[in-house]
Lab assay of single mutants.
Amino acid sequence: ELSWTAEAEKMLGKVPFFVRKKVRKNTDNYAREIGEPVVTADVFRKAKEHLG
């Protein structure tokens, strides 16, 4: 699991709890794919757009 900024964690907190774990995993995987060592708010937004 990658490191997350406080802002990205806050955004994740707005995701319904029953899918939060999956969203975190998918976002981590997306960040790795694009070469990001940390999940930022920008990476979170891009993952959301990319993953739907």
Results as ranks from 00 to 15, higher is better:
9 E>G: 04
7 E>C: 06
26 N>W: 15
46 K>A: 12
21 K>Q: 15
22 K>H: 14
36 E>P: 01
21 K>M: 13
2 L>R: 06
49 E>M: 12
10 K>A: 14
32 R>G: 04
16 P>E: 04
10 K>P: 00
34 I>S: 08
6 A>F: 09
49 E>W: 10
30 Y>K: 02
8 A>T: 02
41 A>V: 11
50 H>R: 11
20 R>E: 03
39 V>W: 00
22 K>L: 14
31 A>R: 01
17 F>A: 13
33 E>W: 11
23 V>Y: 07
45 R>W: 09
32 R>Q: 07
16 P>R: 04
30 Y>E: 01
8 A>L: 00
10 K>T: 10
26 N>I: 15
38 V>W: 06
3 S>H: 13
49 E>C: 10
44 F>E: 01
22 K>V: 14
24 R>C: 03
7 E>A: 09
9 E>R: 10
42 D>R: 06
38 V>Y: 07
18 F>P: 14
1 E>K: 12
20 R>H: 03
34 I>N: 10
10 K>I: 12
22 K>D: 11
10 K>M: 13
40 T>S: 06
41 A>G: 09
9 E>Y: 08
15 V>T: 06
38 V>P: 00
20 R>D: 02
30 Y>C: 03
52 G>D: 14
21 K>F: 09
40 T>D: 06
48 K>Q: 15
37 P>D: 12
25 K>R: 13
14 K>D: 13
45 R>L: 14
17 F>I: 13
52 G>R: 15
19 V>C: 15
45 R>V: 12
43 V>P: 01
11 M>H: 04
5 T>Y: 02
44 F>N: 01
39 V>A: 01
28 D>E: 15
19 V>Q: 14
1 E>T: 11
31 A>S: 06
17 F>R: 12
52 G>T: 12
32 R>C: 06
42 D>G: 05
3 S>E: 14
29 N>F: 08
16 P>T: 03
12 L>K: 01
1 E>R: 11
38 V>H: 06
41 A>T: 06
20 R>Y: 03
15 V>I: 11
47 A>C: 06
12 L>I: 05
6 A>T: 09
38 V>F: 07
5 T>E: 05
15 V>P: 02
49 E>H: 11
4 W>Y: 01
15 V>S: 04
44 F>L: 06
21 K>Y: 09
20 R>W: 03
43 V>Y: 02
13 G>I: 09
13 G>P: 05
39 V>Q: 00
24 R>G: 02
9 E>V: 10
24 R>H: 04
13 G>F: 13
8 A>F: 01
46 K>H: 08
29 N>S: 11
25 K>V: 13
13 G>D: 13
4 W>S: 00
30 Y>W: 07
43 V>H: 02
7 E>I: 05
36 E>K: 05
